[in-house]
Design a protein around this nucleic acid. Structure first.
Length: 584
RNA sequence: CGGGGCGUAGCGCAGUCCGGUUAGCGCGCUUGGUUCGGGACCAAGAGGUCGGUGGUUCAAAUCCACUCGCCCCGACCA
């Protein structure tokens, strides 16, 4: 492509609304343009990157024997009713009506559609296993789109679904996806970790997320540098660094604590650390009021609580607490509180000499012993892991890190097949539900994550495998080097290299700045040395440049490109086993 | 949904408190000329319902009310 004829609207200044590096750089380098909150236009450069990512995805999905299909986005309400997700998705689902008033949804995901397909065509164990996938637009009315294309309301996702006759079969399909994903993200040049995750709205048992560590991420991971353990804080477990805190309170006493409500206020007032407090929070699980207890130096993890209680929970309002127990929030405690259930974080087990609310305004109890002074109906891991907790595998301190979720794999089991009636006849003649897995990759997120990972103060530094072009030719003075540039452009294209040729009639500074900004891996600079038969090859990532005689230029460009690609291929070989040329 | 901020030319902004000429500046754009290794220079131009609606006023970008949109920080997910 000749730049003079291309739509590459680079910006000289940083867009003010963009905060995260990927958002800022993708806008500024002319890859995307915002249309509405959480809805983006992919401009030519952005679209080229998406295509390259999708190409890798397709190659790797095909390698594990997956078949590509294309599902509609416009989906009938009835199907969602069958799984119960018409309701479960709530306001996150875009809904509309046709001219006859029939209700539909723009699909936020496609478990139902694929299960529907399966129930029609997969009737026998002989038809199994199958893996089907698509790359398609998903619609989710996110409460808060953010960080450019990282969290949007309309996005491209590769989603695949496996259908097996047995749980071992599911394990295998899942494992194949695990490998395919590892290869995909490695080939895209990403550094990532695979973590245990919560399955959320999808349901099902095991689930792992492919995470790119980045400050722009929205998830928080607990990672162990010693043994490599990593888990989303939604599910991460960690041992408190401090097990049984030392307490000055040897016997149960009521103390006057006027106006002292929060953990900080109580610890300040009593002159003790937060680990001596029992934080008592009233949650509503439907109509049931549950008192949730965690140590004062921890927060309740609502995802875990939800999991443990098996239903949607929300924290009770101060009014509800007042109405139900006649106690002001801030002075609630487990001793003699007429609550339906008391559920305590396991780190509270056996603790003595603790402090909690006295269920009376302006009073707290000190010297409280767990289970001696109040009952605990259930212990569970309810606390949110914090920095410095002990790794559950090796005991080393955990570190918290923000991360971008680029992929997620689930063992769904039979939830959707049973709901939609996707049964097959097994070898033994019995009807059984098909066992499903579901697997997703956010295509746009891979793009954003790559920018988050690889950029410098001058712009983006694309990994060769997903860069919009392989090589950019900078023809500094087009009148003097135009012919040389044109010849090189044609030669490289003839060799299968994707080339962007900056043939614009602009001063050299503009071309250098723009080239660094859009981040194509290799630059060929044709400047005044061309008169002496010399050009310059520059690697965007390192800034390293070499002078090359014009007659060797094409060969040297091809060699340099090959060596950049080789570095990524080596990593693929190491992390995923087998070279990329070896079919599965 | 809760909290904070912002809407003025394609982009970045000033002007808004304290109402008063033709609404400014930089970049970009157009034309002509010069220049060509890190966001060049000269000259001449074009481009604006001041987010919208209603109100106050002799007079509104500016004051008031409502409304729409966008961004950022917290609860959901690829």
């Amino acid at each position: 492509m000749r730049w003079s004829q291309a739509l590459i609207p680079t910006l000289k200044e940083d867009p003010k609304e963009a905060q995260s590096p990927s958002h800022r750089l993708l806008l500024r380098a002319g890859f995307v343009r915002q249309h509405q909150a959480g809805v983006y236009i992919f401009l030519p450069l952005g679209q080229r990157v998406l295509h390259r990512i999708m190409r890798i995805v397709r190659e790797e999905m095909d390698r594990i024997g997956a078949q590509e299909v294309l599902m509609p986005s416009l989906t009938a309400r009835e199907l969602w009713e069958e799984s119960g997700r018409w309701k479960a998705f709530g306001p996150d689902m875009f809904r509309l009506q046709d001219r006859k008033g029939r209700e539909m949804a723009l699909a936020p995901t496609h478990e139902e559609l694929f299960a529907d397909l399966a129930r029609h065509y997969l009737r026998s164990y002989r038809d199994l296993p199958q893996i089907w996938y698509q790359i398609q637009t998903k619609f989710r009315d996110e409460p808060r789109p953010r960080s450019g294309i990282l969290r949007v309301r309309e996005f491209l996702m590769k989603d695949s679904y496996s259908f097996d006759a047995s749980w071992e079969g599911l394990d295998h399909s899942y494992e194949m996806h695990h490998q395919a994903y590892t290869r995909i993200f490695t080939r895209a040049g990403l550094e990532f970790v695979v973590t245990r995750a919560s399955s959320g709205l999808m349901g099902g048992s095991a689930s792992e997320e492919f995470m790119v560590l980045s400050e722009a991420g929205e998830d928080t991971l607990a990672v162990c540098d010693a043994c490599g353990y990593s888990a989303n804080v939604e599910v991460a477990t960690g041992e408190p660094a401090l097990r049984q805190p030392e307490s000055p309170f040897k016997k149960l006493e009521k103390v006057h604590t006027p106006g002292v409500r929060t953990v900080e206020e109580v610890t300040g007032f009593l002159g003790v650390g937060p680990e001596l407090l029992i934080k008592s929070l009233v949650y509503m699980a439907g109509e049931k009021a549950v008192l949730v207890l965690v140590r004062g130096d921890y927060e309740v993890n609502e995802a875990k609580l939800q999991q443990v209680l098996g239903s949607e929970v929300r924290i009770a309002t101060p009014e509800e607490v007042q109405d139900r127990f006649g106690v002001e929030v801030g002075f609630v405690g487990p001793v003699n509180l007429p609550v339906d259930e008391i559920i305590a974080d396991e780190a509270l087990q056996g603790l003595q000499g603790m402090v909690c609310g006295a269920n009376e305004t302006d009073y707290h109890l000190v010297g409280v012993n767990v289970e001696e002074h109040f009952p605990v109906h259930r212990y569970a891991d309810l606390r949110e892991v914090k920095e410095g907790d002990r790794c559950p595998q090796c005991g080393a301190p955990l570190r918290l890190h923000r991360a971008i979720e680029v992929g997620h794999i689930f063992k769904l089991g039979t939830r959707y097949s049973e709901a939609l009636g996707a049964y097959f006849t097994d070898r033994d003649g019995k009807e059984k539900p098909i066992i499903m897995g579901s697997y997703g990759i956010g295509i746009g997120r891979v793009m954003a994550a790559a920018v988050e990972l690889y950029h410098d103060k001058n712009g983006i530094v694309w990994p060769v495998t997903i860069a919009p072009y392989d090589v950019e030719i900078l023809a500094l003075d087009p009148r003097k080097v135009g012919t040389v540039a044109e010849n090189l452009y044609r030669d490289l294209q003839a060799s299968g290299v994707e080339v962007l040729w900056d043939d614009r009639d602009l001063s050299p500074g503009v071309k250098f700045k723009d080239a660094d900004l859009i981040g194509i891996p290799l630059h060929v600079v044709l400047g005044r040395k061309v008169a002496q038969g010399v050009a310059e090859i520059k690697i965007r990532a390192t800034g390293a440049s070499v002078d090359v005689p014009l007659q060797d230029l094409k060969t040297r460009v091809l060699e340099t490109l090959a060596s950049l690609r080789e570095k990524i291929d080596e990593r693929v070989g190491k992390t995923a086993g087998g070279s990329p040329e070896t079919p599965a």
